[in-house]
């Protein structure tokens, strides 16, 4: 399988705090990588470095074979990004916003309209097309963010909390969409989440980071298998707690 995301030894300091302290990630075509970790572990910072929004202090990123630091525009063309909180221009109407993104992505005229129509159908945005983004519910806002990220059908997708704020039905729908894009369209997808069941539902791989370092990198099934026998409730919760609260050794096989 081809490696579509290749991050080597990413590091980032904010003042004296080492937010990301040497992260390596290789994500292949068809993989859906669930990115987990407690708040402040460096998830968003890592994703921002993968997309080039933040410059890493050291380390390199390649997206679909293009180095982010030598050819940033070409690398960005091959990537779709849903930033944390799904930011969008509040005064713009949904259709105008998606048209703007399509044009900024280099699609012109009827091609741009066609792309927008396609994504609207795919994400079911038809009923809110004429509304301004500030009037949308949190769920629709998130879906608009997802729509702009996949509009150009990129090989690489970076999604920061794509299902946050969605109701159970919408969550189910978005998860199906993500699984499909990974499995049948062969995209490399990195998504961050706080919902551990989501990792089991859509991800082919789970990476847990803590204090800026990768502490777990394996399949969700094996992650569940690591759970201590006596743990009540969710097995994943127990693993997550044990690896991110310092007793890493006890949790390992």
């Amino acid at each position: 399988m081809t490696t579509l995301i290749e991050a080597k030894d990413l590091r980032k300091k904010f003042g004296a705090i080492k937010a990301v302290n040497g992260i390596n990630l290789n994500v292949s075509a068809g993989e859906v990588l669930g990115f987990l970790g407690p708040n402040g572990a460096g998830k968003s910072t890592t994703m921002r470095m993968l997309t080039g929004f933040l410059e890493a202090d050291s380390g390199t990123v390649q997206l679909a074979g293009v180095a982010l630091d030598t050819d940033p525009l070409e690398a960005r063309r091959r990537m779709g990004y849903l930033p944390e909180g799904a930011p969008a221009y509040p005064d713009m109407r949904v259709r105008d916003f998606l048209m703007f993104i399509a044009q900024a992505r280099g699609f012109m005229g009827s091609e741009a309209r066609h792309r927008v129509e396609q994504v609207i159908e795919r994400i079911h945005l038809g009923q809110v097309l004429g509304q301004t983004i500030e009037t949308l519910s949190k769920g629709f806002k998130r879906r608009v963010g997802l729509a702009q990220a996949i509009l150009h059908d990129p090989p690489v997708l970076i999604l920061d909390e794509p299902t946050d704020g969605l109701d159970p039905n919408q969550k189910h729908e978005v998860r199906n969409l993500i699984s499909e894009m990974g499995a049948s369209q062969g995209k490399a997808i990195v998504l961050s989440t706080h919902i551990l069941e989501e990792v089991e539902a859509v991800c082919t791989r789970a990476v847990i980071i803590n204090k800026g370092k990768v502490v777990v990198d394996e399949t969700p099934a094996r992650l569940v298998a690591r759970a201590p026998e006596e743990s009540g409730g969710s097995a994943l919760d127990a693993v997550f707690r044990s690896v991110t609260s310092g007793d890493l050794e006890e949790a390992g096989q």
Binding site: L73, P83, E84, A104
Partner: peptide
């Protein structure tokens, strides 16, 4: 303030 800078700075625009 709205975070849209993260959106436009990661589009293929300089």
């Amino acid at each position: 303030r709205t975070g849209t800078i993260e959106l436009i700075a990661t589009l293929p625009l300089t």
